[in-house]
C-alpha cells in the first residue's frame, strides 16, 4: 500500500470513527519512560566519565593527561549519530553486543561526558592558587586537598553547565530511535504513521520534552542551592 493511500485511508477512517487516543497516548508514555531511563542513565555515566576525564586532564602524569585528552577530543569531535551506530552496529564485530538501551546509554553518556569533562576541568582550575597554597601549608595531601577543599568549591561552578548538558542529553536521546529503540520520538512517529495525525503525537512529545527539561532545570537549581550553601557572599 502506498504512503498516500495509507494516509488517505486513515484519514477517511478518522472521519468515520473517532480515534481511540488513549491507546496511542499510552504508547507515547511508554516511549517517555524509555527517554527518562536513557536520560538518567546517560547522565549518570556522563557525570562519572566527566569527572574521570576532567580530573585526568589535570593529572601529574603525562599518560593520564594524554588518555583523557584523546577521549575528550574524540567524543566532542565526532557526531553522536555516528557514535551510536558504532556502539550498536560495530561493537558486535569486536564481540561486544549491546542491547539498544545499553548502546544508547553508552553513546549518550560518553558524548555528553566529554563536554562535561571540560566543565570539571574549568571549574577545578577556577579555584584559585590561594586555596591550593593553604592546603599545602596545612600539609593536606593532594587527594585530601581535592576531596575536601577544591571539589566542594568547584562543584557549584559546574552545576549550571551540567544542567545545560543534561538537557542537551535529554534532547539527544531522540537519535536512539535510529537504532530501533522505542523512545518518545520513535513512538510519536509510530502513532503518526498509524493515525495519519501529526499534530497530536508531536504536540504531546513537545510538551513532554519541555516538562522533562523543566524538571531537570528545577532539580539543578535545587542542587545548586544545596551545594553552594555558605558560599554566597564574598570569596575568602
Amino acid at each position: 500500500m502506498g504512503r498516500a493511500a495509507h494516509y488517505a485511508e486513515n484519514s477517511e477512517r478518522n472521519n468515520e470513527t473517532m480515534i481511540d487516543w488513549s491507546g496511542y497516548i499510552g504508547l507515547i508514555l511508554e516511549g517517555a519512560w524509555v527517554t527518562v531511563q536513557l536520560t538518567l542513565m546517560g547522565s549518570a555515566l556522563a557525570v562519572v566519565v566527566a569527572f574521570a576525564a576532567g580530573l585526568g586532564r589535570l593529572s601529574r602524569f603525562m599518560a593520564v593527561r594524554a588518555l583523557a585528552t584523546t577521549y575528550i577530543e574524540f567524543f566532542r569531535g565526532t557526531s553522536i549519530f555516528v557514535q551510536l551506530f558504532w556502539a550498536y552496529f560495530v561493537l558486535p564485530f569486536a564481540g561486544i553486543t549491546l542491547t539498544p538501551l545499553q548502546a544508547g546509554v553508552l553513546a549518550l553518556g560518553l558524548n555528553v561526558g566529554a563536554y562535561g569533562a571540560e566543565v570539571v576541568r574549568g571549574a577545578v582550575k577556577a579555584i584559585g592558587r590561594e586555596q591550593r597554597e593553604a592546603c599545602i601549608a596545612l600539609n593536606l595531601s593532594r587527594y585530601q586537598a581535592m576531596r575536601h577543599i577544591i571539589l566542594p568549591q568547584a562543584l557549584p561552578l559546574m552545576l549550571p553547565t551540567f544542567g545545560n548538558n543534561a538537557i542537551e542529553l535529554l534532547k539527544g536521546t531522540a537519535v536512539v530511535s535510529l537504532i530501533s529503540l522505542t523512545d518518545m520520538t520513535f513512538q510519536a512517529q509510530v502513532v503518526r504513521a498509524q493515525t495519519g495525525n501529526t499534530l497530536i503525537p508531536f504536540a504531546t512529545i513537545l510538551v513532554l520534552y519541555f516538562v522533562m527539561a523543566w524538571l531537570i532545570s528545577l532539580g539543578m537549581r535545587w542542587l545548586e542551592r544545596r551545594v553552594s550553601r555558605g558560599l554566597d557572599g564574598l570569596r575568602v
Binding site: Q131, A134, N139, L140
Partner: peptide, 24 residues
C-alpha cells in the same frame, strides 16, 4: 599565615581550624 587569609569559604570557622589536625 597568608596576606589574603586563604580561609576555606565553604567551611565554618571551627571546621577551618579542625580540618588539618583531623586529616593530617
Amino acid at each position: 599565615v597568608f596576606q589574603h587569609f586563604n580561609l576555606f569559604p565553604h567551611k565554618c570557622v571551627l571546621d577551618n581550624v579542625t580540618l588539618a589536625p583531623i586529616l593530617t
